[in-house]
Amino acid sequence: MTDTSNSTVVDLEQLRATIADVLELSLDELTDDARFVEDLGVDSLIGLELQITLEVQYGVRLTEADLRRATSLHSAHRLLTALLTETDLPAPERL
């Protein structure tokens, strides 16, 4: 597993708390690699809720392709970090 907890763009524990709240999970249950759909039973509606929540909280626009990549806390963290890094660039096509 790649250690992303030191990222200065997206705080992993803050993201864990946000996602756990949306999914009605305890922080302990939302491990870094638990898969949202297969392990945590997230359905499409809650997936959309998570999308909106992350978009608002982190000021990004998530595409369907982005959501397909964000299958766990770890991958969501990696995705958000990448998106926020890009949005710092002059061409904010994702916003």
Binding site: L45, E49, I52, E55, V56
Partner: peptide, 9 residues
Amino acid sequence: DLLSPARAP
């Protein structure tokens, strides 16, 4: 666009 999908129904 920011309506809550889970509450929208």
